[in-house]
């Protein structure tokens, strides 16, 4: 199949960017979207140009590295799919595809389609953990966890930290990402001692990073490759209010 690509090109974070047009020729239907870009990049290099910079690593939908918006859809619009697992059989010969980087003020463009997502790391650093020293744990079975909670925690823990939720959010909010971690640890007994402090710290860090607010449109949930439910944001809202109230009373 042959396609027309309109790709955001930007030399570095300081330079202005623009859309440039490329032809993707003889693309096999069974190729993944990124393999299609690999082919285009080889062509660009042979023609003496600089390849389109885009990030990818595991190419099996788990590392969360790949990140691009195709025709306005983060990860390309296939439900529960990262762009590395999006295959060309979902497109038609002759399609015109506009490919852009994640857009959010907290994700500055590094180059072309590559953005800096370190803000997400800093949110985790502000409290997305259980403070347990190596070697100090009790036996794994000494801490029974109801299967239901464990499964629900796993639903949240699946987050791959790709940032698609932020990219799709009209407000550049990272609430789905944040709520997944708060939900995961908040559902488990291990997460209880730091539960309130955690949610307060993480929300404050989220705001400080310049991520926006949730206006309950749930675009995040629709593009999340791990289909993390927006009801984790519900839980986050609740947890945050409870923690704030406790903090006000000096109980945290």
């Amino acid at each position: 199949m042959n396609l027309t690509l309109k790709v955001w090109r930007q030399k570095d974070s300081k330079s202005p960017g623009r859309i440039e047009t490329y032809a993707a020729k003889n693309i096999p239907e069974s190729a993944s979207f990124l393999e299609m870009l690999d082919i285009v990049n080889e062509d660009i290099m042979h023609a003496g140009g600089e390849p389109i910079m885009f990030e990818s690593d595991c190419r099996e939908g788990i590392c969360g590295t790949c990140s691009m918006v195709i025709n306005g859809y983060a990860h390309g619009g296939q439900r529960g799919t990262t762009v590395c697992q999006l295959h060309m059989r979902h497109f038609k010969d002759g399609d015109e595809l506009t490919i852009e980087p994640w857009r959010a003020a907290a994700f500055p463009v590094v180059r072309d389609l590559v953005v800096n997502r370190s803000g997400l790391d800093r949110i985790i650093q502000s409290g997305g953990y259980v403070s347990v020293r190596t070697g100090s744990a009790v036996d794994g079975n000494a801490l029974p966890v109801p299967k239901k909670n464990s499964d629900l925690a796993m639903d949240a823990a699946q987050c791959i930290g790709c940032g698609a939720c932020v990219a799709a959010c009209k407000n550049g909010s990272a609430m789905l990402f944040l709520s997944a971690k708060v939900g995961h640890l908040g559902l488990l007994p291990q997460g209880q001692p730091e539960r309130h402090r955690r949610v307060l710290n993480m929300v404050r860090q989220h705001d400080q990073e310049g991520f926006g607010n949730c206006t309950n449109q749930y675009e995040c949930e629709a593009v999340c490759p791990k289909e993390i439910s927006s009801t984790f944001i519900t839980r986050l809202n609740r947890d945050y209010a409870v923690a704030s109230a406790r903090e006000l009373l000096g109980a945290v």
Partner: peptide, 9 residues
Amino acid sequence: VAQGVPFAR
């Protein structure tokens, strides 16, 4: 487990 890894139960 102590770190909160949600192993199957």
